[in-house]
């Protein structure tokens, strides 16, 4: 019997429906789709309020991933595409979503989504995605005033974390907890290129470091790297972390401690910010159009 290769990078897909509400009562139903390099999210808003969402791993192409994520929401709510008034696509695959009415950059959508998730006092958003890392400043309306993005290099992204999860054969969902299960915080792996960091991690293991210690050193390297990005435009409170890595407390806590700033807690899945922002932009576009 062939044993299936374990996929250590695999994180949990999630979905949610606000069961207190019925979409049939809504005036405007909008859909936001965020096709990222690693995950795809679909969010439905009723009259500009979050109603349902679904996150999946991005497949081989953007249209299929967008469809799959959308069907996930529809299956749980009974909605169909005909019920949707307007759809905005965002993310890396945003121009390849066949049923989207408009594409909007992920920077603007993340700003808008995080403003909703964290409230109007949010000024700085750190979004750590599968293949990028963004720092965004927004004003009290959720409009972007300053941003910086890093999508050239895997260091400081979810993909970089997956590489180390695979190397150590530790599920990526356990990385956060395990990174604190150590006697003393080790120095960060010194190299910030994922390829070289991987060789360094292998060297530390050979020297006899425990897996947890290597994980801690890697989380610290990643946090330092991300903080140096943040420091380019600064951090203004309130601060929120979104994206898949927000769920990795090994990185999130270390970032907070390096910056000396606590990140705002949110009850929503941190991965939906972009799609949520897209659905909110869709709502604005529909209401503007109706007024005009």
């Amino acid at each position: 019997m062939v044993e299936e290769k374990l996929e250590y990078w695999r994180w949990t897909e999630s979905s949610h429906v606000d069961s207190d509400r019925d979409w049939r009562d809504a005036r405007v139903i909008t859909l936001g789709i965020d096709v990222g390099s690693v995950s795809t999210e679909a969010v439905v808003c009723l009259d500009g309020e979050l109603y349902a969402y679904n996150t999946i791993r991005t497949g081989a192409n953007s249209p299929d991933s967008a469809n799959l994520a959308m069907e996930g929401v529809f299956a749980k709510t009974g909605l169909t595409l005909e019920d949707i008034h307007y759809t905005v696509g965002t993310g890396y695959g945003r121009v390849n979503i066949p049923f989207a009415d408009k594409a909007i950059t992920e920077i603007a959508c993340h700003g808008r989504g995080a403003h909703y998730m964290g409230g109007p006092t949010i000024r700085t958003i750190l979004d750590m995605g599968g293949q990028d890392c963004k720092v965004i400043h927004i004003n009290e309306l959720g409009k972007v005033t300053n941003f910086l993005m890093n999508d050239k290099c895997a260091a400081g992204t979810g993909r970089g974390m997956e590489v180390i999860a695979d190397l150590l054969e530790v599920p990526v969902t356990e990385i956060g907890e395990r990174s604190f299960d150590i006697d003393e915080e080790p120095p960060a792996v010194s190299d910030i290129c994922v390829v070289f960091a991987k060789s360094e991690a292998m060297a530390r293991l050979k020297e006899g470091w425990s897996k947890n210690k290597v994980i801690a050193a890697y989380c610290r390297a990643m946090s330092e790297r991300v903080c140096s990005l943040i420091n380019r435009i600064g951090v203004e409170e309130d601060f929120i972390i979104t994206g898949g890595i927000a769920k990795n407390i090994g990185v999130a806590r270390r970032i907070e401690s390096i910056l000396g700033v606590k990140a705002r807690e949110t009850t929503f899945d941190s991965q939906i910010a972009g799609a949520l922002g897209a659905a909110l932009f869709a709502y604005t576009l529909v209401t503007k159009k109706n007024k005009g």
């Binding site: 081989a60 293949q131 050239k152 290099c153 895997a154 993909r159 590489v163 994922v194």
Partner: peptide, 16 residues
């Protein structure tokens, strides 16, 4: 892709 890690994925999708 300008990064080795991302380029590996790009090569895989080119093969596909």
């Amino acid at each position: 892709a300008q990064c080795t890690v991302f380029a590996e994925s790009e090569v895989v999708s080119l093969i596909h």
